[in-house]
Design a protein around this nucleic acid. Structure first.
Length: 434
RNA sequence: UCCGGCUUAGCUCAGCGGUAGAGCGGAUGGCUGUUAACCAUUAGGUCGGGGGUUCGAAUCCCUCAGCCGGAGCCA
């Protein structure tokens, strides 16, 4: 009878049994007649103990010479061992190489520069740290979807190719679309979600977004994944509550389902455990006042810069909701505050520990004339927004929504210094390879 | 795009006007409990490209390129 192929993650329930594992050799150490094979198979990592006396000279020497990242099949007996970080080891009884590299694997356990690693991104994904980060990302996205489905939302996939319609002009990727003329890569799916919300009530999307901004910071990617939600009849307060519930759900789900990955990443878990709604709130106006008191040179009407954002976030140990920004610095579609027409019913959620904005949100203008007025004031052509304006003609209702940057959430929860590690293949200002 | 910085062995870096260095990785050998294993031996370089200053340049100056960090914009 063939030996059972078992994933490394499931080996702790196979103690004393003879099993087969299929994976890769990511490191090895030899000490005379005993060797330690560091194996991984995608489900986890384990150490294989190989002894010359047990396995014979030929296989032992073969194992000793195997290059890093060779793919191998190992058979052996699972053993409980206190010295193993996962509590079990495998005593190797058979060792077979499936494919051995001809040249040495370029990534070592020592330090590498970021440019070198990004050039090797297709291989770097195998490294333990990257493996843990992307596993957390997967868990985050799963939690986002679970959240919306559990709340009765409908998934609406918004288009990647769009006409000249978006939040603002000037930062879109432009391309020829057969004889139609110019089209643009989506910088937001919001306008389409607004249309769908008038059919389904509660809708969300989750997909890639493109911004042709020459951004060169630790918080920006050219291609990034965004989750947007839009709800008919929701107003400013309902909107904030939804965001808080979403973020709490995502954080708590990741803590529950991906804790081991966070620990491997040496993330301070205690900073995430208290992420429970409701979150602290501050208006833009109060934030400016407080910044001024702290000695910052900023006046009402000026945008909150990265430095200010970090300062505001440092006042709290949970994400903070900054609401009601001046209308002139925000997108055309945001609903003016009835109590103060100089500000709009919007909010940004800033993650703690300097991670900055993770959500941008607002109540949308639902009155057609106000919307046309704001479009014109923003130097946008109402003609281009024909279908969007029609939504305000047929049974228009107050509605609200927001967008959450997936990579920013990944960076925050994993404690990353730079967002480029939060996506499998980052597209940055000067890199589209691999 | 703007402001800084970096570019020396496969990788990470030291050297900063007078014969090109280390650690890791590679190769060879040793070691039966290693955790970035260790010990010994060894191979490996047009010092990013071009120009200049100098008796002499990896080192000083100019220029180009690539990359990194930060700003703005935003998720």
């Amino acid at each position: 009878m063939a030996i059972e192929w078992v994933e490394i993650a499931k080996l702790s329930s196979k103690i004393g049994e003879k099993v087969q594992i299929k994976g890769w050799l990511w490191n090895k150490r030899f000490s005379g007649k005993i060797g330690f094979l560091q194996l991984r198979d995608g489900s986890g990592f384990i150490q294989g103990i190989i002894e010359k006396a047990l396995i014979g000279e030929e296989i032992f020497e073969n194992a000793k010479k195997t290059k890093y990242e060779s793919s191998v099949i190992v058979e052996g007996t699972v053993r409980k061992d206190e010295r193993s970080p996962i509590g079990v080891e495998i005593s190797v009884e058979n060792y077979e190489i499936i494919s051995e590299p001809e040249t040495d694997y370029p990534i070592s356990n020592k330090d590498h520069g970021i440019d070198f690693l990004m050039e090797q991104r297709h291989l770097w994904l195998r490294s333990r740290r990257q493996y843990n980060i992307l596993a957390v990302r997967s868990e985050i996205i799963k939690a986002v979807r679970e959240f919306y489905y559990s709340k009765g939302f409908t998934l609406i996939d918004t288009p990647i190719f769009t006409g000249s319609i978006g939040e603002s002009a000037g930062n879109t990727f432009e391309m020829e679309y057969f004889d139609y003329g110019k089209v643009y890569l989506a910088q937001t799916g919001q306008l389409y979600l607004e249309a769908a919300a008038m059919s389904f009530g509660k809708v969300f999307n989750l997909g890639p977004t493109f911004r042709a901004e020459k951004s060169k910071t630790r918080r920006h990617l050219i291609e990034f994944w965004m989750n947007e939600a839009e709800v008919a009849f929701y107003q400013h307060e309902d909107n904030i509550k939804l965001q808080e519930e979403l973020v709490e759900y995502v954080v708590q789900s990741v803590l529950k389902n991906a804790k081991d990955h966070l620990i491997s990443l040496e993330r301070d878990i205690s900073k995430l455990e208290n992420i429970k709604a409701p979150f602290p709130r501050i208006t833009y106006t109060d934030a400016i006042k407080k910044l001024q008191e702290k000695g910052y040179e900023i006046t009402w009407g000026e945008d909150i810069g990265a430095e200010h954002e970090t300062e505001i976030a440092s006042w709290f140990d949970r994400p903070v909701v900054v609401e009601k920004y001046p209308k002139d610095m925000k997108a055309f579609y945001m609903q003016p505050d009835p109590e103060n027409p100089d500000v709009v019913l919007c909010d940004d959620m800033l993650a703690p520990e300097g991670y900055g904005e993770i959500i941008g949100a607002s109540e949308r203008i639902w009155d057609k004339e106000t919307l046309i007025k704001r479009l014109t004031e923003s130097n946008l052509d109402p003609e281009e927004y024909k279908w969007y304006l029609e939504l305000r003609e047929f049974g228009s209702v107050p509605h609200s929504g927001f967008g959450m940057g997936i990579e920013r959430v990944v960076a925050w929860l994993c404690g990353l210094k730079h967002i480029r590690e939060a996506i499998p293949f980052p597209r940055t200002l000067y890199r589209v390879y691999p």
